[in-house]
Amino acid sequence: MRFVYLEPAHDWTDQTVEERMRLCAEALHAQQLISPRQFNQITTGITQRADRQRDLRSRNRGPN
């Protein structure tokens, strides 16, 4: 299983897809293309998906 939100964002230095998506949401909000409510919904969704993927990844690794 691939954890897309946790993959390196190859064309941006040392960032994950999660970090890139958050920056994109921040840029849209800064340009007033999305409302504060939409920004919160988007960033909450990004965090929830990435947290689920982190949880699944840790379960798949098993005990050390």
Results as ranks from 00 to 15, higher is better:
Glu19Asp: 08
Arg2Val: 12
Trp12Gln: 02
Arg22Asn: 05
Trp12Ile: 15
Ala25Glu: 00
Asn64Tyr: 13
Arg37Tyr: 08
Tyr5Val: 00
Arg2Ala: 12
Ile34Gln: 03
Val4Asn: 11
Pro63Phe: 14
Glu26Asn: 11
Arg57Tyr: 09
Arg54Ile: 05
Leu23Val: 04
Thr13Tyr: 08
Thr44Gly: 08
Arg59Pro: 05
Ile34Phe: 04
Ala9Ile: 01
His29Ala: 03
Gln41Leu: 15
Pro8Lys: 13
Phe39His: 14
Tyr5Arg: 03
Asp55Ala: 08
Arg52Glu: 10
Arg2Ser: 13
Gln41Cys: 01
Gln31Ala: 15
Pro63Asp: 05
His29Ser: 05
Ser35Trp: 07
Arg57Glu: 12
Thr47Cys: 08
Ala30Cys: 04
Arg57Trp: 07
Met1Thr: 09
Thr43Arg: 09
Ala50Val: 02
Asp11Val: 14
Asn60Leu: 10
Val4Ala: 14
His29Gln: 09
Val4Cys: 01
Arg49Ile: 09
Arg54Asp: 02
Pro36Tyr: 05
Ala9Tyr: 13
Trp12Gly: 00
Arg54Val: 02
Thr43His: 04
Glu19Ala: 04
Gln48Phe: 15
Asp14Ala: 14
Arg20Phe: 10
Ile34Cys: 03
Gly45Lys: 11
Ala25Arg: 00
Asn40His: 06
Asn64Asp: 09
Arg52Asp: 10
Gln41Ile: 06
Pro63Glu: 10
Phe39Lys: 11
Cys24Arg: 05
Gln38Trp: 04
Met1Cys: 07
Asp51Ala: 15
Gln15Ser: 06
Leu56Glu: 13
Leu56Ala: 15
Asn60Cys: 07
Gln31Glu: 13
Arg59Lys: 15
Asn60Glu: 12
Met21Asp: 02
Glu18Ala: 01
Asp51Gly: 02
Gln15Met: 13
Leu33Met: 12
Val4His: 14
Thr47Lys: 10
Arg57His: 10
Ala27Thr: 08
Asn40Tyr: 04
Gln32Tyr: 09
Asp11Ser: 12
Ala30Phe: 04
Glu19Gly: 00
Tyr5Ser: 02
Val17Arg: 09
Arg54Tyr: 04
Ala50Ile: 02
Arg37Met: 10
Pro8Ala: 11
Pro8Arg: 12
Gln41Thr: 05
Glu18Lys: 00
Glu7Cys: 04
Arg2Glu: 12
Asp55His: 07
Arg20His: 04
Leu23Glu: 10
Thr44Phe: 15
Thr43Tyr: 06
Gln38Val: 06
Val17Lys: 02
Arg22Tyr: 07
Pro63Met: 12
Glu7Val: 01
Ile34Pro: 01
Gly45Arg: 12
Arg49Met: 10
Leu33Arg: 10
Arg49Trp: 12
Ala9Lys: 07
Ile34His: 03
Phe3Met: 05
